[in-house]
Write a protein that binds this DNA or RNA. Structure first.
Lengths: 234, 234
DNA sequence: ACAGCCTATTGCGAATTGTCATTTCGACCG
DNA sequence: CGGTCGAAATGACAATTCGCAATAGGCTGT
């Protein structure tokens, strides 16, 4: 478990009106005078790889927008086994559950250096009552989270280890838009797919040997997308 | 695949104001004059075991409230494998996705005779804009669906076949409030847990032999809850 | 009662995955 | 440059699960 750089640092406050990714963010639909209603500015922070953004059971006080980086949400079973139930990156929203629950149901951990904006739950709640567009945006976020979860079940928790790995690689590459894959440890890979670390490692090594993927830099992979896709049919 | 009784029958229109389960249903928060705004009454239907309520890819025109019975939502992969991603029963809402998507992302099938109310998506959409309580209720429904999906991943898609079966039995019994389990075919059991039909069958048979469960009636099980729970620790 | 049909159960060998230990590799540090 | 540390890869063996086929059991209709 990597601990180096597992840090959090507050990096100032944000003026949402000037946000570089404003167009794709939860507050996309807000207008000038909506922003006027913020009594306090929005906090921004950077988390190092391995840092915990919030832990399962913590009082759920905020939602978070990911500006850059990669975050995992992990859930634990009583017997100690854990499973990564979501992977989130730029423009994604985490902690939606704070709108309903009083405690976070997952642990959120940065997998790469990650920039985040903190949105106090009361901000979002009160704005959503008065602003129909934010309301719709929220609904769309719930929907997206849910269809991702469904995908997690059918694609990442079903079939042979090789199929699962391949589906995840394709998903990561497609989400980026090219054939590259920012990846993480074999341990996390296993926790996403419901496999042991060793099986994850063996499967990746095997795919490398067969030439379906290469690893130009550590934990960055190049995928032969068409061939990988063909693997899933056979 | 059982086809007998795979029927649908319209059974009339409902007056929501007189609904027996109104207190726990999506429209719980509506007031008298909200109901006035319904230009058309709500349709009610009964589906026989095996009947399809909607299919993946169908135009998403309605949400459905389950009055009684049991419904599975199935998702398919390109290669033909399928996975049950949700099990729903009385007072649950299905087809929430219709509020966002133009097509249903799952196939909904009745596992038992099931009574359903059909709520046209436009009804719900327009009411939700004017009624804050309905809005909150919708949000709560999204939340519930999502936390169920998370549970599906960590409890029903992780660990040995025996652990998965036991967790599902406990979940079904706890949801009912006693130690009884209305169950379904071994094939569906496997599709919920990501196991083959044979493995599901073997595991159930083994639990029966060991005395953890008994089957007084077909597909109805009695669970020795404390012992089952103990199995999960070991 | 009997035939027909569907589902559950079981046996068995093959394939996959898990488990534990060891080795290799790469990054970092003194 | 050698030493150290953690992650990845691999070997060996055990346990689990799959896949296919055969059998048993239950329900329906005649």
């Amino acid at each position: 478990m990597k601990r180096v750089g597992a840090t959090e640092a507050w990096t100032g406050t944000a003026d949402c009106r000037l946000c570089a990714i404003r167009g794709s963010v939860l507050f996309a639909g807000l207008k000038e005078d909506d922003f006027e209603r913020f009594h306090r500015p929005i906090d921004q922070s950077v988390y190092g790889a391995g840092a915990t953004i919030y832990a399962m059971g913590d009082p759920a006080t905020s939602l978070f927008t990911i500006r850059s980086g990669l975050v995992k949400l992990t859930q634990f079973l009583p017997d100690g086994t854990q499973r990564i139930v979501r992977l989130l990156r730029s423009t994604d929203l985490i902690g939606l559950e704070a709108l309903i629950d009083s405690e976070y149901p997952h642990t959120a951990t940065a997998l790469q250096p990650t920039e985040i904006c903190r949105l106090p739950v009361e901000f979002v709640r009160s704005l959503s009552h008065s602003n129909a567009q934010l309301f719709n945006e929220l609904m769309a976020r719930w929907h997206k989270a849910l269809s991702n979860a469904d995908r997690w079940i059918t694609e990442f928790s079903t079939g042979s280890s090789r199929d699962r790995v391949v589906r995840l690689l394709l998903w990561l590459a497609e989400a980026r838009g090219d054939e590259r894959c920012e990846l993480f440890s074999r341990e996390d890979l296993g926790a996403v797919l419901g496999l042991t670390t060793e099986t994850a490692s063996r499967t990746m090594a095997e795919l490398k040997r067969q030439g379906f993927i290469s690893e130009p830099r550590v934990n960055q992979f190049l995928c032969d997308m068409p061939s990988l896709r063909r693997l899933l049919d056979a």
